[in-house]
């Protein structure tokens, strides 16, 4: 294809996006669009399956049968999200094995929040309330993103995440209405998860490298800082209802702007975790690699069995 032809296709492509048309896997797309989407969708899929680990950590210790069942269902939902996000990503011409390989080698990223440890039952509440809450704010705009398979996957993901968030908040509410010990457990969880949750929106707009292009492709509709502000505005009153304190002495409602002001984020910590040196980066990646490598013989067996069955069928037919 000549440069002029490519330019022409690009112009048509950008016009389709401007008209809010969905781009489907078989449509022509610029290579950079394809690559950016593989990066973002796979990062999202990896976050779902790595995200199973910190919560999976409490399944065997859930305090009641009702909570155990709800937590199992939640972690299973996350596996389901991973599954259809990987499937959406595969439509862009990359295999699941390649995507796993990128995760296991450290080339692909996943949400840094899952590199923090889950130390008490209250962390199951805090993750639902804060982490899923932040995820929803990040993800709702993606229901209208330009790439069809991703947008459709996100509609379902967002519905389930919103259920998870209510469930998490309800865990917090139960703790905060419980004994002093339970309330202290809830406060401690908020103290540990608050700042990492704010970091989930990514670096400040000034530092964000992908924002401009992503806005153009409707892969992003608001900037990191706008989304972060929305999260703080939404969450601060919820903490008041719970009767626990957000660990930020500078957090205060600003009558003039109509928003909450909040204190500075520790970006050194953010970059440390992103670069692989958070409290649990090593453990999370190891768990994924062990599951994959330890399960190789099982996948090989399934393949070999399927081939044998296929041979039998062919032999019968002939």
């Amino acid at each position: 294809m000549s440069d002029a032809e490519v330019k022409n296709l690009e112009a048509l492509f950008e016009a389709r996006i401007a008209r809010d048309e969905k781009i489907e896997p078989k449509d022509w797309m610029p290579e950079k669009y394809r690559k950016t989407h593989i990066r973002q969708i796979s990062q999202h899929a990896h976050s779902e399956i790595v995200g199973m680990l910190p919560e999976g950590n409490w399944i065997t210790r859930a305090p009641s049968l009702r909570r155990k069942a709800a937590l199992l269902a939640k972690v299973q939902d996350e596996a389901g999200h991973g599954l259809y996000l990987y499937a959406a990503c595969e439509t862009l011409g990359i295999s699941r094995e390649e995507l796993y390989e990128q995760l296991h080698s450290g080339k692909a990223k996943y949400s840094s929040i899952f590199n923090y440890p889950t130390l008490t039952w209250a962390d199951m509440g805090a993750i639902g309330w804060l982490v899923d809450g932040a995820a929803i704010i990040n993800q709702v705009p993606l229901c209208n993103t330009s790439f069809g398979p991703y947008a459709r996957a996100m509609v379902r993901v967002c519905k389930e995440e919103s259920f998870h968030q209510r469930q998490g908040y309800e865990i917090m509410l139960t703790l905060c209405n419980g004994t002093e010990e339970q309330k202290a457990m809830a406060q401690d969880a908020l103290n540990r998860w608050w700042w990492p949750s704010l970091m989930m929106f990514g670096p400040t707009d000034a530092e964000s490298t992908h924002t401009e292009q992503s806005m153009k492709w409707k892969l992003k509709r608001k900037t990191n800082d706008e989304l972060r502000q929305q999260f703080v505005d939404q969450t601060a009153p919820q903490a008041d209802i719970l009767g626990i304190t957000i660990p930020d002495p500078e957090l205060k409602f600003n009558e003039d702007t109509g928003h909450y002001d909040f204190g500075p984020i520790d970006w050194d910590e953010f970059w440390q975790v992103v670069k692989g040196h958070g409290p649990c980066n090593k453990e999370r990646l190891e768990a994924r690699v062990n599951a994959w490598e330890g399960g190789a013989w099982v996948r090989d067996a399934a393949m070999a069995y399927a081939e044998k069955q296929e041979h039998k069928k062919v032999a019968k037919a002939s």
Partner: peptide, 17 residues
């Protein structure tokens, strides 16, 4: 429940959960 998140494939993980 101990196996959740550690299955040999995502599909078996979901089924076992």
């Amino acid at each position: 429940g101990e196996l959740c998140g550690h299955g040999p494939t995502l599909e078996t993980d979901i089924a076992i959960t």
